[in-house]
Amino acid sequence: MLKNITLGQYFPGNTFVHRLDPRTKLLIIVVYIVALFLVDKITAYLPVIVFLAISVMVSKIKLKSLVSGMKPLFVIIVITAIINLFFTSGEPIVKLWVVTITKEGVRAAVFMLLRISLLIMGTFMLTYTTAPMQLTDGLESLLGPLKKIKMPVHELAMMMSIALRFIPTLIEETDKIMNAQKARGADFETGGLVQKAKAMLPLLIPLFISAFRRADELATAMESRCYSGGEGRTKMKQLCYGAIDVTAGAAAIVLLAMVILLNTFGI
């Protein structure tokens, strides 16, 4: 059951989108988010949607996996949209008992719905098409200048990639311990909130102990392999921008320009 989690999942491939430098993808996603939040006319969503649709098509990511990835957030999206729908004041169009739906409310709900969905799908596109290791490499490289002001950029990137590396291992372990405790009659499903929280102890304590033991052993293993922080380290896979990064970057700038244009002249 825990194996179905799609946290930071990566779908390997060799498409244009997959081959982009992770730094380019990170920068594009920043531009994309900025564009998304600049939108204040409904037509200005069009270029954002087209941009996303093209990247989905080019990367051969199945629409189904994008949508299923959104499932856990579905409730939040709907609730936000409903709140906007009912609690925005303005020109009323429907009056039902105590609730009034205003024109502004409908607009705000649609905007919120589009904004959140597009934001989530966009970031999913980033994680779906970029190996976690590449992503951390990209972040480390982009944030590189911060090292000058003593930010532990390399260490943070390392921590992130190790955390990603151990997520599947710990999920597997959780499954195992859960089964072992179930075999001793542990009940994780029934009971109130307090009871349920208490029932988690036989799972959480062994899990934490094991995580610390793993951390300790991993640290020893890393030291044995001459790890001593980022200083003097090289990379096998060096990041380098290519022609595709230039074209993709240009596309992102076009996106931003179109949103601004439509904000000004669109309806």
Binding site: E173, K176, I177, N179, A180, Q181, K182, A183, R184, G185, A186, L201, P202, I205, P206, I209, S210
Partner: peptide, 27 residues
């Protein structure tokens, strides 16, 4: 579950109580 007892591989990783007594008493 109580009539068919199952001991998993590396069962020591399921220990969690403060004392040996309490851990054995869990089931």
């Amino acid at each position: 579950r109580f009539k068919v007892g199952l001991v998993f591989q590396y069962p020591e990783y399921q220990l969690f109580e403060e004392t040996v007594y309490k851990d054995i008493a869990f089931g």
